[in-house]
Simulated scan of single mutants.
Amino acid sequence: MCLAAPAAAQDCRLALVLALDVSSSVDPSEDRLQREGMGRALLAPEVAEAFLAGDPVALYAFEWSGRNAQVPLLPGWVMVEDEPTLGAVARGIAKSRRSHDELPTAVGAALGFAATRLREAPDCRARTVDVSGDGMHNEGFSPDLAYSTFPFENVTVNALVIGGAENSEDLAEWFRAEVLHGPGAFLIFAEDYDSYEEAMKAKLLRELQPPAVSAISGRDRPAG
């Protein structure tokens, strides 16, 4: 797996940050479904084709929970330019192990961490943060404060909301109101962790379409 080298904007179409929720509401089996589901979604033929169509995508992935608990899942930014690199990324995420399982849900801190990592990203034409979560923020500074404090200009933040742990309608509405940010931001809803893989696949396909950020907002359920 190759770390992303400095790149000109015309050489990178999207810097994409994937953020996985590992707060205490996520049990061990759900955590494994999330990691392995993301790995399989990245390797789905239609997703791989979207990744490798045209200029490359720079990818960063981390897990988040408490206010000081954001842990990278990959060795920094990875420039996805070929199938072997995408395969290495998918396997790395699928085989990763969570660092915490007892902490609250600090969405603001996760957003701040993502914005800081984007400062280190290659100079891509678009920048997107993708937050997966199954609960509302309950520790540390709020998402609103994160957006007013950290550099989110020209950054789109999408959400993959996982139902089951809380009232699904309330949870989706909270993410829509407090987390979605930037041009074309959208939300994908998974009924539960068993549905996570298909939801992640649908979300990645939408994010990878030109111009790398969807122009449609709102709650979407993946087909099937």
Rank of each mutant, 00 (worst) to 15 (best):
I216C: 03
A9Q: 13
R40H: 10
L171T: 10
D55A: 15
V131W: 01
E36H: 02
A61T: 08
C2H: 08
L73N: 01
R119G: 11
T156I: 05
C2I: 12
S96K: 02
A109G: 13
P75N: 14
A4Q: 05
A19H: 01
F152R: 09
A53I: 00
H137P: 04
P104Y: 08
E36P: 00
D55F: 00
A88S: 12
D170Y: 09
A7M: 12
R67K: 13
P28Y: 01
V89G: 01
G108K: 11
Q209D: 13
V213F: 02
I93E: 02
R97P: 00
D21Y: 08
Q10C: 04
G163Q: 12
D170C: 00
P56W: 05
P56S: 12
L180E: 04
P210M: 09
A69V: 04
C2A: 12
Q70N: 11
L171P: 05
L208R: 09
V157H: 01
F141H: 11
W77G: 03
G163W: 11
T156C: 07
D123T: 11
R125H: 01
V107D: 02
T156N: 04
G37W: 04
D220R: 15
L74N: 03
S25G: 04
L73R: 09
L43N: 06
R221W: 12
P28G: 05
G135Y: 09
S29F: 03
P183W: 07
V213I: 15
R219N: 09
D55R: 13
G182A: 10
G135D: 07
A115M: 04
R176P: 00
I216L: 14
A190N: 02
V161E: 02
T128E: 01
A48L: 08
A48Q: 14
C124K: 05
I93P: 02
D55H: 03
Y147N: 08
I188V: 15
V107F: 07
S23G: 09
A202H: 12
D220K: 13
R176A: 09
S132F: 08
Q209K: 15
D194F: 10
R219Q: 14
P104N: 07
C12V: 15
L42K: 04
G66Q: 10
G87R: 14
D21M: 07
G184P: 06
R206L: 08
V107Y: 05
A223M: 10
A172Q: 14
A41P: 01
Y196W: 12
R221Q: 11
N138H: 10
A69Q: 14
Y196Q: 07
E81D: 09
D123H: 12
H100V: 14
D101P: 00
N167F: 07
W174E: 03
A58E: 02
A159K: 10
P211Q: 11
A4G: 13
D101E: 10
A9G: 02
D192G: 14
A94N: 06
D130Q: 07
I162V: 15
S168N: 12
E169V: 13
L208W: 03
Q10T: 11
I93M: 05
V129N: 01
L20Q: 07
V179C: 10
G76A: 11
G37I: 04
K95I: 00
L145S: 11
H100D: 10
V47D: 00
L111S: 07
G39M: 02
I216A: 13
N167L: 06
R40A: 13
P122Y: 11
C124W: 04
K201W: 03
Y147H: 10
A212D: 09
E30P: 02
E198C: 13
